[in-house]
Design a protein around this nucleic acid. Structure first.
Length: 464
RNA sequence: UGCGAUGUAGCUCAGUGGUAGAGCAACCGCCUGUUAAGCGGAUGGUCGCAGGUUCGAAUCCUGCCAUCGCAGCCA
């Protein structure tokens, strides 16, 4: 590859196949496949990759993708110069190509467009591509995640993820929230319960990758009223389930002068907005994923609210009816099968609130009428997808917070700044966190979180 | 970390004591409406590793390694 500089000739020589192109074609105006319908009958140039080839003697079908979509190129031998036909015959899966042709409606499928190919320029002839159009195991595909991302299903999932993230931002931005991101490097555990990834901080101190921005959110909410943070979150737990990543993205709103009921209302408005937005803008993708959209259409406020006590009764009744294997005793946290059973009783997300304070984090406010309960809420997604939101009202009293820190055996000095928030104008405040990947998993109807992030980090998966 | 499973061709898998198999991919042909196209041909193996039982082990036994699933923990 040589560039003579300026606007003079720009030559690309591909030694592998000895193809030469000049600046004229490489700079030709690009049309994205998603836009071809508007250019029916005109000559357009598509810059992309060869997704698949089917040949029928003297008629070739070239499936071309360019990130915006996939289009089938039609190439009859007798309609193009010999050189174009011969080049097409050598193309391999995922070779990069620039194809010029004329979009035309599919003879049998109104609404879908094909491309009558006139010219093909080879940019690079791909070597034997590991991911064939046939079936593969998840492990093999994950090892080739950098290439797997090129397939239709992954396109659909990542587009839904994008739509969800955009909706999340729009919801908070339009609702008076200020984005105030919290640090990824933190000096100590936020909650002291889970395992953190440790980082050497210039040799003389240890730092940890954040497991939640919540404590910092309380400071920004006290400054700006309504805030949210949105960033990567890290959990070093050795979880090996379909619901866990070691690195995931979490959005966490926090509201000053808000109580538990306020954030429950916020959560149901928020989740409904996000789901409805995906339904509005990503029908095609949901179709590729074979998602039952009727179930998503039902996600509108209000959501059922279920006190922990009543959830326990529900589980105990379920046990008596033989629908829940183990007897659930009051005071414990719900396991995955328990959550599945509870959420299975509703066709909307269910908000379970007021868990026993003992099993919740130290900063949870206590119920004024039942000091053994925490003013917290978990939102369980329908169809067995489990917890996607966790949050609640934060401890307002300086003295009570000090006792909680002591009870949880946490080092008080690490929380002095956090205690300051209770010394200087303490107010009732509340918030929650939502795991983006769990939300995407549910909205897409997947059975595992690992496909909802471009490069998942899990126990036993740090590459690619 | 516990419990359960799996490991055979590039990929997906079959093969339960007697010569190592299929489909797909890649390679060579045929086919003008294919949609994971189809058809024909040729090619492709240290059966996870180590030890043991046996005339003979992919197959039975022991140990190890790797991976997956479920659970715990959590979003």
């Amino acid at each position: 590859m040589a560039n003579a500089g300026g606007t003079s000739t720009f030559i690309i020589i591909l030694t592998r196949d000895s193809v030469r192109t000049d600046r004229r074609t490489i700079t030709m105006k690009q049309t994205y496949i998603s836009e071809v319908a508007a250019h029916a009958g005109e000559s357009v140039t598509i810059k992309g990759w060869l997704y698949n080839v089917r040949s029928s003697g003297k008629l070739m079908f070239l499936e071309i993708r360019d990130g915006s979509g996939i289009i089938q190129g039609i190439l009859p031998k007798n309609a193009v110069p010999e050189a174009v036909w011969e080049l097409a015959g050598t193309l391999t899966q995922e070779s990069s190509v620039i194809v010029t042709g004329t979009p035309r409606e599919h003879p049998k499928r109104p609404g879908t467009f094909e491309l009558d190919v006139a010219e093909i320029e080879l940019v690079q002839l791909a070597q034997e591509y590991p991911i064939t159009p046939k079936e593969h195991g998840v492990e093999f595909l994950m090892d080739h995640r950098h290439l797997w991302l090129r397939s239709k299903r992954q396109h659909a999932i990542l587009r839904v993820r994008h739509e969800i993230i955009r909706a999340v931002r729009d919801f908070f931005d339009n609702d008076g929230f200020i984005l105030a991101d919290t640090p990824v490097l933190t000096p100590a555990a936020c909650e002291g319960t889970t395992t953190l990834f440790e980082v050497d901080y210039f040799g003389d101190e240890k730092a940890f990758l954040t497991q939640s921005g919540q404590l910092y959110n309380e400071a920004t909410a006290a400054a700006l009223g309504k805030t949210y943070c949105f960033g990567p979150t890290f959990r070093a737990e050795k979880s090996k389930t379909r619901r866990h990543l070691t690195e995931f993205w979490m959005v966490e709103p926090e509201v000053a002068y808000a109580e538990l009921d306020d954030v429950m209302t916020l959560a149901e408005r928020f989740l409904s907005f996000v789901v409805q937005r995906v339904l509005e803008n990503r029908q095609e993708e949901l179709k590729v994923l074979e998602r039952d959209t009727a179930k998503l259409a039902a996600i509108v406020p209000p959501f059922p609210r279920l006190q922990y006590d009543d959830a326990v009764k529900m589980l105990q009744q379920g046990h008596a009816d033989g629908k829940v294997e183990n007897f659930f005793e009051w005071g414990g946290d719900f396991g995955a099968p328990d959550e599945t059973f509870i959420s299975g009783q509703f066709d909307k997300p269910v908000m379970v609130h007021r868990y026993p304070a003992q099993i919740k984090a130290f900063y949870m406010e206590e119920d004024p009428t039942r000091s053994d309960l925490a003013l917290c809420v978990d939102v369980l997604a329908p169809e067995g997808y489990g917890e996607i939101i966790g949050g609640g009202q934060r401890m307002q009293s300086y003295d009570k917070l000090i006792s909680r820190i002591a009870e949880h055996h946490l080092p008080r000095e690490a929380f002095e700044w956090y205690l300051d928030l209770r010394k200087y104008g303490s107010v009732p405040h509340a918030g929650f966190g939502m795991g983006i990947e769990r939300c995407v998993t549910w909205v897409c109807g997947l059975d595992h979180v690992r496909e909802t992030i471009p490069f998942p980090r899990m126990l036993n998966r740090l590459r690619p």
